[in-house]
């Protein structure tokens, strides 16, 4: 994967156009298509309500995997310096706390409201 990272540093010689180096782009594309296809297969096979939590966990893992490929390869973050990677990832990871806190809060609010008049 370091092939295209080094490629960016090529000195430009006027009138001479290098050959495209696109194999890694199409590889990432097929990975994204495969993960999306897998999500659809799971959406239509694991339909039992008992499996809901398990199914949703798989969806979230696959979503983060897709995000990893888009941000890492397409947005090139994987090939940036470590400090830039952490500058982006550390603040974003705070969202995990926000989601967990507010989703839990939402369940409690729903619980309270449903017993309010009974």
């Amino acid at each position: 994967m370091s092939a295209h990272a080094a490629e960016a540093e090529h000195a430009y010689v006027p009138g001479e156009i290098a050959k495209p180096n696109t194999a890694w782009i199409w590889k990432t594309f097929w990975v994204l298509v495969a993960i999306t296809a897998l999500e659809f297969v799971i959406a239509f096979t694991l339909t039992s309500p008992d499996w809901r939590t398990f199914r949703n966990s798989i969806f979230i893992v696959l979503t983060i995997l897709k995000a990893f490929f888009i941000v890492g390869e397409f947005m090139h973050l994987k090939h940036e310096v470590k400090s830039l990677i952490w500058t982006v990832l550390v603040p974003t990871s705070l969202l995990i706390w926000l989601v967990v806190a507010l989703v839990t809060e939402g369940s409690f609010i729903g619980e309270v409201l449903s017993h309010m008049f009974t």
């Binding site: 989601v99 507010l102 839990t104 809060e105």
Partner: peptide, 18 residues
């Protein structure tokens, strides 16, 4: 990302409330 994160978090919270 934080703006969209806030939107999706609000979605999660409101969905769990219902």
């Amino acid at each position: 990302a934080f703006t969209f994160g806030a939107f999706l978090t609000a979605y999660g919270m409101i969905r769990h409330k219902h």
